[in-house]
Nucleic acid binder design. Structure first.
Lengths: 138, 138
DNA sequence: CTTTACGTTTACGTAAGCGTCAAGCACGAA
DNA sequence: TTCGTGCTTGACGCTTACGTAAACGTAAAG
């Protein structure tokens, strides 16, 4: 073990890939789209904590069904420099917008979960009905 | 008004399209993928309440970021015939699966909303800081 | 030196989810 | 009959988000 001092400060592409269960291709693709900007050590990519966090955010965004373009905007909000007033106002506006979207999604999820429970109830009823007419052990 | 009696029992493709704010193309595409099966009156499509409900479910599924294939499975669960035991067991399994997915998504949403609140707080702080150093009316 | 592991770029392939014509039927009004 | 309106079926195009080779570089280990 030759890097016990600064260990876990940076990662290779393969390390990130296995940790987040994505392919190398995927990670490179995200870089291509400007979502990740790893350091280069020679030709190889070196990922810093910032990149790792961003990858996590990207994947969470994907689970939420956002497109990479949308994710780019969201993720860039996180490490935006204070900037000028107009920029800040724009950011706050974006936040309001995203929040509304997410709350709609949450409602959709609640509804769908409720529907699933209904289907499940019906399903269990059908099942026990089946087992009545054809008693256990047939 | 010549159809005041059985009105709202069936709909044309255009009616559904405007009501749900999608294009005709989209609706036909969903039919092509087996998600909708409208009646045919001559050459025209006639949509019954069942189709309308399904379209609503499809669009909700889309908002949740499911693919049409996944949506097909989900939606088909809703109006599955009682069927045999194996089928019912399969269905219950699917329900468990979907529920897990949705709950993951809900967690993702909660986290993202929390993050957004953080960014917002930081943003508002930066903003008021700016307005302090450069007092109102500059 | 050769193998092995790990990485690189370039580039074509593909499935999903429609948009966008083009060309034509059906039907009521003028 | 002709027009307009609404609907129909192809069929091609496009973007997104990668998969999948192909062909090559680099560096440590045997």
């Amino acid at each position: 073990m030759h890097n016990s001092q600064v260990s876990a400060e940076t990662w290779s592409i393969a390390e990130l890939a296995t940790e987040y269960a994505v392919t190398l291709r995927t990670i490179r693709f995200y870089e291509d789209r400007g979502l990740l900007t790893p350091e280069r050590r020679g030709t190889a990519r070196v990922y810093h904590p910032r990149d790792k966090v961003r990858l996590g955010l990207i994947l969470r965004g994907k689970r939420l069904g956002f497109s990479l373009d949308e994710i780019a905007k969201i993720v860039d909000m996180y490490d935006a420099e204070p900037g000028e007033e107009g920029q800040l106002v724009y950011l706050l506006d974006q936040i309001t917008h995203r929040r509304a979207e997410l709350e709609q999604r949450r409602r959709d999820i609640e509804e769908t979960l409720a529907d699933l429970s209904e289907v499940e109830t019906r399903c269990r009823a059908d099942l026990s009905a089946l087992r009545w007419e054809r008693p256990p052990g047939s």
